[in-house]
Design a protein around this nucleic acid. Sequence first.
DNA 1: TTATCATATTGACGAAATTCGATTTGGTAC
DNA 2: GTACCAAATCGAATTTCGTCAATATGATAA
Lengths: 111, 111
Amino acid sequence: MKEYLEYTRVFKALGDPKRAMIVDMLSCGELCACMILEKFEMSQSTLSHHMKLLCECGLVRGREQGKWTYYSLDKDTIDRTVQFLRRITTDKEDCICKEGAVFCGGCDEDE
Amino acid sequence: MKEYLEYTRVFKALGDPKRAMIVDMLSCGELCACMILEKFEMSQSTLSHHMKLLCECGLVRGREQGKWTYYSLDKDTIDRTVQFLRRITTDKEDCICKEGAVFCGGCDEDE
DNA sequence: TTATCATATTGACGAAATTCGATTTGGTAC
DNA sequence: GTACCAAATCGAATTTCGTCAATATGATAA
């Protein structure tokens, strides 16, 4: 259950087009905030907010150096997120659909 | 650009824990709405709303039969979403970070 | 037809997200 | 020290989201 919350935060972060584009930009390597800001029509405070969200869910790491902050992707979080997505979309023995009473008598009888 | 919108809708759909759980439940096969409803503490209208979102982004397909609606995962959408996630997080030649002027003079000079 | 059942839709509400301008923080340069 | 720059934070306006009760739709059963 805690696992769902962990990864749905990542998905929520990727659920905004501008944040997905920021992730894409970072795929080639570390960038400082000002470089990212140049590519988008948004205020500095808005970008900072997006970067905070991306960092909080674990997708991105920030490294402060002097007055700049450099951002890069956390490949480990990405790998685990892909694995989670694969897991919840693949048939498996311990699926939550098999826990407890999931039967709907009406449906079974009338089908 | 249109691609970002297409897949961020999928991520947004996966960004809610209950919807992620619904996807997980469907991973073992088709289920009717009433079966899913039994597993969650939410009203029928709320579930219907979630199912609509999951269908609209392409993750889930609905099949109406009599008075029931059966839902199942769209594996193709899932595969393409995983590929998209891999693409935007992997170093590549045609990355958007290489388009146009992305330089931040100040950063380069002072670093 | 009338009743009933499964699901979808509508309308309303509070909570959360997105955005910006203004300000603050903390580092660098003079 | 002061001035300046990059980034974070704050406060407020607007939009979107998640939720429910009530109602509508549409199929089946009697």
